[in-house]
């Protein structure tokens, strides 16, 4: 919300700067980028990581990918982000208007915060606006993004003085500040303690609901996937083994029996029961 207010009020943008009303279904064309994956394959030398994967991520959806280590889930995410080149197949990013794609970048949150240790927190967030606007504009928008993740007070601090959870929140602000159309989350909470992780999950859900970017979360924490996503893909041996909808309304209560049942079903599959 806050970011909307600080966006430069140019004539073309004023039309789309109407904030989405919370509670309404995602205004897909306005916010997220839809992703279409066809026959995607990735090989590293002899080893085949993904084989003929087909996938459609609707704009504004929250999809989680789970699977055992080495099932290719991180590779899938890196391919969609353009960090790796596919061995075969195509990845298409659809925006309502192709011309606006640059204004709705793809962003990724890594497992490590990857902050520049020599830049203060505010400047680290401003890295998310590289190549956009003047320095003053970048800093103003970075300050707003910091406020959104609840770290306004740390704008002038060095990253080394922050806790692990705070650093990951700065990384989240950096990814959010450019109003991404697609946000990839590569086990972003894996290194945090349990309580901090729950706080971060709530924060990510809240911001996603406000901004309606397309979210793609890779995680090995099935509970986290079930709590956040509206669709869960279980990847096994380079293919989508399970494609499950999470039909539980938000806000979701931790310990909801429907979530627990779903989590149990996925875990059973992953642990070798295959009885899905």
């Amino acid at each position: 919300m806050l970011l909307d207010l600080t966006r430069p009020e140019t004539a073309t943008r004023r039309v789309e700067a109407v904030p989405p009303t919370a509670g309404l279904p995602p205004a897909a064309a306005d916010r997220g980028i839809a992703v279409t994956v066809q026959g995607l394959a990735k090989r590293f030398g002899e080893a085949s990581v993904l084989e003929g994967l087909d996938l459609y991520l609707p704009a504004g959806g929250f999809t989680a990918v789970v699977g055992r280590s080495g099932c290719g889930k991180s590779t899938l995410l890196r391919l969609i982000l353009g960090l790796e080149t596919p061995s075969a197949g195509r990845i298409r990013l659809d925006d309502a208007e192709a011309a606006r794609r640059r204004a709705r970048p793809r962003r990724i949150m890594f497992q490590e915060p990857r902050l520049l240790p020599w830049a203060r927190v505010l400047d680290n967030v401003a890295v998310g606006l590289t190549g956009q606007g003047t320095r003053a504009e970048r800093r103003a928008r970075a300050a707003a993004a910091l406020e959104e993740v609840g770290l306004s007070g740390k704008a002038g601090a060095w990253p080394a003085t922050l806790s692990g959870g705070q650093r990951q929140r700065v990384a989240l602000a950096r990814a959010l500040v450019s109003r991404p159309g697609l946000m990839a989350l590569d086990e972003p909470l894996g290194a945090l303690d349990a309580l901090t992780r729950i706080g971060m999950q709530d924060l990510i859900e809240r911001i996603w609901q406000a901004q309606r970017f397309t979210a793609l979360l890779v995680t090995h924490d099935v509970g986290e996937a079930v709590a956040l996503a509206d669709r869960i893909l279980v990847l096994d041996a380079g293919r989508v083994a399970l494609d499950l909808k999470v039909d539980v309304p938000r806000p979701r209560r931790r310990g909801d029996p429907r979530l627990a049942a779903l989590e149990g079903r996925i875990l059973e599959y992953l642990l070798g029961g295959k009885a899905a």
Partner: peptide, 27 residues
């Protein structure tokens, strides 16, 4: 190298990457 990758993901040009990531890291 993870910071260099981060810089590239965020669209830094080579000279920005050098000025903001590589040189401070080597200092």
């Amino acid at each position: 190298p993870t910071l260099v990758e981060m810089g590239r993901v965020y669209g830094m040009t080579n000279s920005e990457l050098f000025r903001r990531v590589v040189l401070p890291g080597a200092l």
